[in-house]
Simulated assay, not measured.
Amino acid sequence: MSDKLISPEQCRMARAGLGLTGEQVAERARVSKVTLSDFEKCKRSTHPRTVGAIRAALENAGVEFLEDNGGGAGVRLKRKPSDAIIALEDLNAENDN
């Protein structure tokens, strides 16, 4: 589990990017749906361990969290092996998608 926290906005962006419901993320993070919802809506303070569990669940599902580098913190989907870039000289009938 990561020791770095994520923001509620990053959580919502990650969940949307993955196409996961709050219920699915809560189940994967082993937290209640209400806890996840309250975190995303900034309704109450969420324990760092809980935020870490949510982050780990989203990372395991396929996102990377980007730290603020002056342009704001963000989220991106991890590249899948099938998304690998093939050099032009390596293109052939077998890998022509």
Rank of each mutant, 00 (worst) to 15 (best):
M1E: 11
S2G: 09
D3G: 08
K4V: 11
K4F: 09
L5V: 02
L5I: 04
S7P: 01
S7C: 02
S7N: 08
E9A: 14
E9F: 03
E9C: 00
E9L: 11
E9Q: 14
Q10T: 12
Q10N: 10
Q10G: 11
Q10K: 00
R12W: 00
R12I: 12
M13G: 01
M13R: 14
A14C: 00
R15L: 07
R15M: 10
R15N: 02
A16P: 04
L18T: 11
G19A: 06
T21M: 11
G22H: 00
G22D: 04
G22F: 02
G22V: 00
E23A: 15
Q24N: 09
V25D: 00
V25H: 08
A26V: 10
E27H: 12
R28M: 15
A29V: 09
A29M: 07
V31E: 08
V31P: 00
V31H: 10
S32P: 01
K33P: 05
K33G: 00
K33M: 12
V34P: 01
L36H: 05
S37M: 06
D38W: 03
F39E: 09
F39T: 06
F39M: 05
F39V: 10
E40S: 05
E40N: 04
K41Y: 04
K41W: 09
C42I: 03
C42Q: 14
C42A: 14
C42S: 14
C42T: 11
K43S: 12
R44M: 06
R44L: 03
R44P: 05
S45T: 10
S45N: 09
S45E: 07
T46R: 07
H47G: 08
H47D: 15
P48C: 03
R49E: 15
R49S: 13
T50G: 10
V51S: 05
V51H: 10
G52M: 02
A53V: 04
A53Y: 03
A53T: 05
R55G: 05
R55F: 01
R55I: 01
A56C: 07
A56G: 07
A57H: 04
A57V: 06
L58I: 08
E59G: 03
E59P: 04
A61Q: 01
G62R: 07
G62V: 08
G62P: 00
V63L: 08
E64V: 14
E64H: 05
F65K: 02
F65A: 09
F65N: 03
E67P: 02
E67T: 12
D68A: 12
D68L: 03
N69T: 15
G70F: 09
G70N: 08
G70R: 04
G71A: 12
G71T: 09
G71Y: 08
G71I: 04
G72Q: 02
A73E: 15
A73V: 00
A73T: 04
G74Y: 05
G74R: 03
R76Q: 15
R76Y: 00
L77M: 14
K78R: 15
R79V: 14
R79Q: 15
K80L: 15
S82D: 12
S82N: 04
D83N: 11
D83P: 06
A84D: 11
I85Q: 09
I85W: 00
I86Q: 07
A87T: 03
L88F: 01
E89D: 13
E89K: 07
D90K: 13
D90R: 10
D90H: 13
D90Y: 01
D90W: 01
N92Q: 06
N95K: 08
N95L: 06
N95D: 02
N95G: 03
D96M: 14
N97A: 11
N97K: 07
